[in-house]
Design a binder for these strands. Structure first.
Lengths: 252, 252
DNA sequence: AGCGCTCCAATTGCATGCAGTTTGGCTTCC
DNA sequence: GGAAGCCAAACTGCATGCAATTGGAGCGCT
């Protein structure tokens, strides 16, 4: 028996949604790096729509955490801090444990075949671009979420998985996908067998190891948050000499 | 020591954000019932902004799942199905277990005082409007999430908690807040004591019992989704007799 | 009465225009 | 040489206007 009755969750075909999808994909495939500027004008022109639409799309992506929006400033691709990346993975672990708990032993043969086919695709993509491997791996997890037929769960898993994608591009060293693929296969097997506890443990370990492999320590230099990086240095300067750095320094 | 360093997570002061907050509150306090229409014009006029802004706000709320947006149709307050409500609570349980796991034993005295103060407020609100009690109870959980200083966690817990609020208004029988307040106090105590396992168990039980108390069985009649209710009948009709229900039925 | 049709008011989808803010370079002055 | 100040270009925030779609009232037909 299927995990649950069918239900639609696809995004509508608004121009806004189209642009959202395009940008989302560009971001997770790292065509747009974290920090990349996203001016409304440029987006509108590129996609052949008005600024209004581009703006709306940016709003949606900001709601998903893929884009940062500051008043009167150009929107940029989100640059999650290391801590945020770690938080995202923690949340993801819990959500995906829930996914496999709901799915264990409840998948149809067809669904299992679909999962296996996806992993086969991941396998074939080995050796190709890292970005593609990462995207496929992410989509495996989203495919799982879809099978719960819980639209809310799908949304949250998708969002947090995309965010994790984003952070992988920031903090990851060259990706090794081999074991990830094997772990995907193990998860499918355990799901088919119906061992909920086992598959939750597998998923937990899988995500945890991906996170640990990727998020290598607080990586001081790639931490990106200039303010944080310079804080200790700034402390030294400001406490010993002057109060304000740029304006009054010349008077001292 | 505080659970983590400070971080800002508040919504900006755009007109859009202001309207979002207003609508969100109206929805969770049931001033706007599920299914209520939200025409852009009316919203814009009411809040003294243009349709553009109202529209954008609706988009954000739709991303949060509080509003349903269908192309070329008037936006309406979301009407989650019973199953979606149950799913939301399942997700919420996992997320909030994570919250208290992170918080156990890491709260400052000031934070504990803040939590106690909030529960006191809940206590004082007893006997008042149900909607207010529910909102305060929800805000207790969001307050907890804030103390993790994980913006992502705050966002997800807030969203899913609001959704649960919404479903409570749909499926709940008259709310009994007494035990919920006691359970909140128990959670604070366990957090202060630092017993992570205990507080996770408490939170799990707390949310589960709220859900079970509220989501009384699939309540066939209040299920609201006419299509679902009629599905079995329609199956019978379409498979045995004719293809379309309204147009051809009269000919049979 | 019941059913279908037509047409109009209501409403959304989207582009454009204008005002206010930020950015970055240029000039000026030390 | 380098910092402060100024100015124009770039960009966002928002309102308004127009075309397209919807839904429902009214009307005629059976």
């Amino acid at each position: 028996m299927a995990a649950r009755a069918s239900s639609k969750t696809s995004e509508s075909s608004d121009k806004v949604s189209v642009i959202c999808r395009a940008l989302r994909r560009a971001i997770i495939e790292q065509a747009l790096e974290p920090g990349a500027k996203l001016p409304e004008d440029a987006l509108g022109e590129r996609f052949g729509v008005s600024r209004t639409i581009a703006r709306h799309a940016l709003g949606q992506l900001a709601a998903e955490g893929l884009v940062e929006l500051r008043r009167n400033r150009i929107a940029v691709v989100a640059t999650p801090s290391w801590q945020e990346a770690r938080d995202a993975f923690d949340i993801r672990i819990e959500l995906e444990r829930l996914v496999v708990r709901q799915l264990a032993g409840k998948l149809t043969k067809a669904q299992i075949a679909e999962l296996n086919a996806h992993v086969d695709a991941e396998d074939r993509a080995r050796g190709g671009a890292d970005a593609v491997s990462i995207r496929l791996a992410t989509e495996f997890h989203i495919l799982l979420a879809h099978m719960t037929n819980s639209p809310i769960l799908v949304r949250y898993v998708s969002e947090v998985a995309y965010r994790c994608c984003l952070t992988l591009s920031l903090y990851s060293r060259p990706h090794s996908t081999e074991c990830a693929i094997n772990e995907h296969r193990a998860i499918i097997a355990a799901l088919a067998k119906g061992d909920a506890a086992k598959v939750m443990e597998l998923m937990h370990h899988h995500l945890d190891s991906v996170a640990n492999r990727a998020l290598v320590a607080p990586t001081p230099q790639r931490g990106r948050d200039l303010l944080d990086i310079l804080a200790p240095y700034a402390d030294e300067v400001t406490s010993n000499r002057v109060v304000k750095l740029p304006k009054i320094a010349r008077r001292g």
